[in-house]
Each structure stands twice: as structure tokens, then as C-alpha cells.
């Protein structure tokens, strides 16, 4: 009996080490992953789809698709300002975040209606309006991550390796007993 129990424990721990699988869920199709894989890695931009768009193209698109809410030249209207202090131009550390957000969430109520080329063009236009890239610029999947955002060093790297379950908060507030 003792041996039987022992071997049972041994077997179950072996199974644990290999990773229990419930065989639930089906294999994802490449096509369905591609359709939803819309967050852009700010390091290598590997999720960016092929496409291209220029500042000039973006200016025309902006006038028809964005201006009504974001105002002339991105100064803001019913929707937030896009140019200047405390906007994507001055605050956001990565151009990938701009592309990703326009692509996923704009225009309001017509989310997902822009083509990749249109998203590159609008990104180019807004970066130009913020004085980051020249009027002659064209953005593609190959050069978007080369854009140097003014605030690229403005964020402390995430203290991921310091975080452990049960540890004290990283940005601790001093309490009365300190």
C-alpha cells in the first residue's frame, strides 16, 4: 500500500512537471490571430502591417475624418488636442502607440474603418504637426519605429524585475509610523 501510494505521488508529480493539459480550446488559426493582433511592440514593431502613408496624404484624410472633433491642425474641439503640451507629440514615448491607437479606436463610432495606409498617413500628419517629422516624410512599417519621439526618455523603465507577489508597493506612500 505504501509503495502504491508512493508511486502514485511520483506519477502525479511527473505529470505536474510536464504541465497538465485539459485539452480544452482549439488551435487558433493564423488568420484570426492576425485580425486581432493589433497592439504594437514598441521595440521592434513586429505587429505592424505593411503599408505607407505620407504627411500630405494624412492632411487630406485629417480634414475629412478627424477635423470635426479634433479641430483645425489638431488644436482640439469636442475631442482632445493632439498637438502641443501634454499631447501625444510632447508626452508619448513611442510612435507605435500613436499608430496603434488610431488604428484600434478612431474615428469614434467608426473604429476599425481606416486602412493601414490611412493610419500611416494620419500618424505622419500628426507627428509632422507636432514638429517631429518633416512635411516631406512618408511612414511605413519599416520606418515608424525610427521616429524619435521628444519624450522617449521621459519614462522610468518599468520596475518589472523588482516586483514579487506580496512585496511592498514600489512607489510607497509614507505613513504615520515612518
Amino acid at each position: 500500500m505504501k509503495y502504491y501510494l508512493f508511486s502514485l505521488i511520483l506519477i502525479s508529480s511527473l505529470v505536474q512537471a510536464q504541465g497538465v493539459t485539459y485539452n480544452l480550446g482549439r488551435t487558433a488559426l493564423d488568420s484570426e490571430i492576425q485580425q486581432w493582433d493589433i497592439a504594437i511592440n514598441p521595440g521592434d514593431g513586429k505587429e505592424l502591417p505593411q503599408g505607407r502613408g505620407s504627411v500630405v496624404d494624412g492632411e487630406k484624410l485629417y480634414a475629412t475624418k478627424c477635423l470635426a472633433c479634433h479641430g483645425v491642425d489638431g488644436v482640439g474641439a469636442s475631442a482632445p488636442r493632439l498637438v502641443g503640451r501634454n499631447t501625444m507629440g510632447s508626452n508619448w514615448p513611442f510612435a507605435s502607440s500613436v499608430w496603434s491607437y488610431i488604428n484600434r479606436a478612431m474615428p469614434l463610432y467608426l473604429e476599425g474603418s481606416l486602412s493601414s495606409d490611412e493610419v500611416y498617413a494620419l500618424t505622419a500628419f500628426l507627428l509632422h504637426k507636432n514638429g517631429i517629422i518633416p512635411e516631406s516624410a512618408e511612414l511605413t512599417q519599416a520606418n515608424l519605429l525610427d521616429v524619435e519621439m521628444p519624450n522617449k526618455n521621459g519614462y522610468v523603465p518599468p520596475p518589472i524585475d523588482q516586483w514579487e507577489p506580496g512585496m511592498q508597493r514600489l512607489f510607497k506612500i509614507i505613513g504615520p509610523e515612518y
Binding site: A39, I40, P42, W92, P93, F94, S97, S100, I160
Partner: peptide, 11 residues
């Protein structure tokens, strides 16, 4: 993934 992605609300 291998790093944080910095989505809109995160910035």
C-alpha cells in the same frame, strides 16, 4: 510578450 506595450490608456 517580452516587454510592456504602452497602449493609449497606459500613457
Amino acid at each position: 510578450v517580452d516587454r510592456p506595450y504602452m497602449g493609449y490608456q497606459e500613457i
